[in-house]
Computed example of a mutant assay.
Amino acid sequence: MDTQQSVSTDADGQEICDSGALTERGLGQRFRVDWYGEEREAFAVRFGGKVYAYLNSCAHIPIELDYQPGDFFDLSHNFLVCATHGAYYAPESGLCLGGPCPGRRLESVPVAERAGKIYWLSPATGQDGWPD
């Protein structure tokens, strides 16, 4: 699986990958976003049947979480983990549950799953989550 994607734009937002590329608690999909005028690294994972996405930056010190590209889950596959600092996060909220930054959060990136694709919804989207 390609673990670094640039997103392509269409009427539904910017495509990250096919839905099948994200397996439950499996490897994540890395992608780049224009985050308020700054190009940033982000990632998407599937947990509990839903897709969640965050900027790829530890809440403790801004370093990418994955040691191997796309490998965001701990060994139990229950938590996202920073391979450098050992901080672990709830996949569904990004809340740091332990390690050097308890109570802080990963920065959430808005995504949606529609018609077999996963899309990043840029900050310029409308209230319903889809581009105006």
Rank of each mutant, 00 (worst) to 15 (best):
G98E: 07
E24A: 08
R30C: 13
L27A: 14
L106E: 09
V109Q: 00
D10I: 05
I118Q: 02
K50R: 12
C101Y: 13
A21S: 09
E64F: 12
S93C: 06
S76Q: 05
D2P: 11
P69S: 04
L55C: 08
F72L: 13
G13D: 00
F31T: 07
Q5H: 15
A90C: 11
R105C: 14
P131K: 01
D12Y: 06
F72C: 05
G94D: 11
L55I: 06
F47I: 05
A11Y: 06
L80Q: 02
G20S: 13
R104V: 02
R25G: 04
R40E: 05
D12I: 00
L106V: 14
V51M: 07
L97N: 14
W120D: 04
G49E: 00
F31P: 03
G103I: 10
D128C: 12
G129T: 12
F47W: 06
D34K: 10
K50C: 07
E113C: 13
Q5E: 07
R30I: 12
K117N: 03
W120I: 02
V51P: 06
A124H: 00
C58S: 10
G103W: 11
S122E: 01
L80T: 02
P131V: 03
A44R: 02
M1W: 08
T23A: 10
E41P: 09
L95H: 15
G13Y: 00
R25L: 03
F31N: 06
A83E: 11
R114D: 05
A83W: 13
F47K: 01
P110M: 09
F43I: 10
V51D: 09
F47P: 03
P62M: 07
Y52A: 04
R46G: 05
A83S: 14
E64M: 12
S122Y: 01
T125Q: 01
Q68L: 14
